[in-house]
Computed example of a mutant assay.
Amino acid sequence: MNKAQLIEEVQKKLGGDTSKRAAGEALDAVLESITQGVKKHGRVLIVGFGTFKLAHRNERMGRNPKKPEIAVKIPASNTMRFTAAEVLKKTL
């Protein structure tokens, strides 16, 4: 499912009066809030759905499989991880 399909599903769930634009704005607001919450607090917990957490990746060495003799330094970075809640896992 891509973002456009997700917006259509949100529009259906909100009812016939809701436009695709309003559903898209609602989805964007939720995603932005999750991003800001993780950035500010380090994690966002949505009960019954899961947890978004900030994770740190240390600097490491990587190699091109076609030229394994050439090592490349991959810099340290931050990323976001998601852990599904038990309720969500049971529904899948």
Rank of each mutant, 00 (worst) to 15 (best):
M1P: 07
N2D: 06
K3C: 00
Q5H: 08
I7N: 14
E8D: 13
E9S: 15
V10S: 08
V10N: 05
K12Q: 03
L14H: 09
L14M: 10
L14V: 06
G15N: 11
G16C: 09
D17I: 10
T18A: 05
S19D: 04
K20F: 07
R21I: 08
A22N: 13
A22I: 07
A22D: 11
G24F: 00
G24N: 06
G24V: 08
G24S: 11
E25M: 01
A26N: 03
A26E: 06
A26L: 06
D28A: 12
A29V: 05
A29R: 06
L31Y: 06
E32N: 09
E32D: 10
T35A: 05
T35L: 05
Q36Y: 05
G37I: 00
G37K: 02
G37D: 00
V38S: 00
V38R: 03
K39Y: 06
K40V: 11
H41Y: 04
R43D: 12
R43H: 04
V44A: 02
I46D: 01
V47M: 11
G48D: 11
F49C: 03
G50T: 05
G50D: 02
T51I: 10
F52R: 01
F52K: 11
K53M: 03
K53S: 15
K53Q: 11
L54A: 15
A55F: 04
H56C: 05
H56T: 14
H56E: 13
R57Y: 13
N58R: 12
N58G: 15
E59C: 00
E59P: 01
R60H: 13
R60A: 04
G62R: 08
R63F: 08
R63L: 10
N64C: 07
N64E: 10
P65T: 11
K66H: 05
K67Q: 12
K67L: 15
P68A: 00
E69Q: 15
I70M: 14
I70S: 05
I70V: 09
I70N: 03
A71H: 07
A71N: 01
V72Y: 09
V72G: 02
I74N: 01
A76H: 00
A76L: 07
S77I: 11
S77T: 13
S77P: 12
T79I: 13
M80P: 06
R81S: 13
R81W: 02
R81N: 07
T83S: 14
T83I: 14
A85K: 08
L88S: 01
L88R: 04
K89N: 01
K90S: 12
K90Y: 12
